[in-house]
């Protein structure tokens, strides 16, 4: 091994050429914009006005004393937490079931994967149509079978709107969990179950010590990636509710968008997104610590 690595040390110049384009892209399209965002968060940057002043921490003070910010923060956590738990549960349950049934698993798999193919705008149109308070299938069905006296307006009624958007997100996101968990389940050698059975382990015991142990790496990774994705997600909620009614579904990305492009205060919007990033960094550090601990345990 040593000789090989020494040989390759000499040609590190070639190695640099291989990675150079990517390094340039990352620096120009990610590092530089992030720093300019941090810079803007200390300024009075406006969407149209050209004058720009250094305002120190004024933007952060404005954001942190704004009650809407806390509403959005709380909604973001609620939206992410409920969605991710639902997606994991449904995705996991369907994957286990598909792995267990003797026939037609390919057929069910194809049907279950369909929501994943929906772009955000089509998700919004479709569900807004199904839940439309006048012509929609769902409110009319509920009224027809006598569960409600008059059609519920799922996107305007404060009692229903949050549950409805979380349901839509679970509908959309579960297939991704299902597909990845299923392919992880398929890699578990069946001898392990046979050995456990021989040793007299109960189904529950072998589920915990074999199944969960094998797939928790994939689940952990999915949880990290999807948590970040949902937390950062802008289009789904923006297209379905736009943050309304009266800020009930307003999350941090939507709040930043409204401040930045609605109120045209790009400096303040930058401050919100910087806070958002710091929060996510913290969460991810925790997650990664957990993942490395699992990896160590597996060895």
């Amino acid at each position: 091994m040593r000789t090989i690595s020494e040989k390759y040390k000499k040609i590190n110049k070639t190695g640099l050429l291989f990675i150079l384009p990517a390094v340039l892209i990352v620096v120009l399209l990610l590092i530089y914009p992030i720093f300019s965002s941090i810079y803007f968060s200390f300024t009075s940057k406006h969407l149209i006005k050209t004058r720009i002043d250094w305002v120190w921490l004024d933007n952060f003070k404005f954001v942190l004393t704004n009650p809407d910010f806390y509403v959005a923060f709380y909604n973001s956590i609620k939206w992410t937490g409920l969605s991710i738990v639902g997606q994991l549960l449904i995705g996991f349950a369907t994957a286990l079931a598909l792995n267990k049934i003797p026939k037609y698993s390919g057929f069910f798999r194809i049907l279950l994967i369909i929501p994943w193919a929906f772009p955000a705008i089509v998700i919004a149109f479709t569900w807004k149509w199904i839940f439309n308070d006048v012509y929609g299938f769902m409110p009319n069905l509920l009224t027809a079978i006598g569960m409600t006296n008059q059609n519920i307006n799922f996107f305007a009624d404060p009692n229903f709107v949050f549950g409805t958007v979380v349901f839509i997100n679970i509908w959309f996101g579960s297939p991704l969990f299902m597909v990845n968990i299923l392919s992880a389940l398929k890699t578990i050698p069946s001898e392990q179950y046979e050995a456990a059975f021989m040793d007299g382990a109960s189904a529950w015991q072998s589920f915990w010590s074999i199944t969960i142990r094998h797939i928790r790496g994939v689940i952990g990774l999915l949880l990290v990636l999807r948590t970040i994705w949902i937390f950062n997600n802008f289009d789904l909620l923006y297209l379905i509710t736009g943050g309304g009614p009266s800020n009930l579904t307003m999350t941090l990305p939507i709040f930043a968008f409204k401040v930045g492009w609605g109120m045209k205060q790009l400096g303040v919007a930058s401050a919100i997104t910087v806070i958002l990033l710091l929060f996510l960094l913290g969460i991810c550090l925790l997650f990664f610590k957990l993942l490395t601990k699992w990896e160590r345990d597996d060895r």
């Binding site: 970040i228 950062n232 802008f234």
Partner: peptide, 20 residues
Amino acid sequence: LLITTYMFPPILLAVPYSII
């Protein structure tokens, strides 16, 4: 390090991008 860029919120990049 690269995968940490995955956590950059698109809305965070939207501000500098729309300017640049």
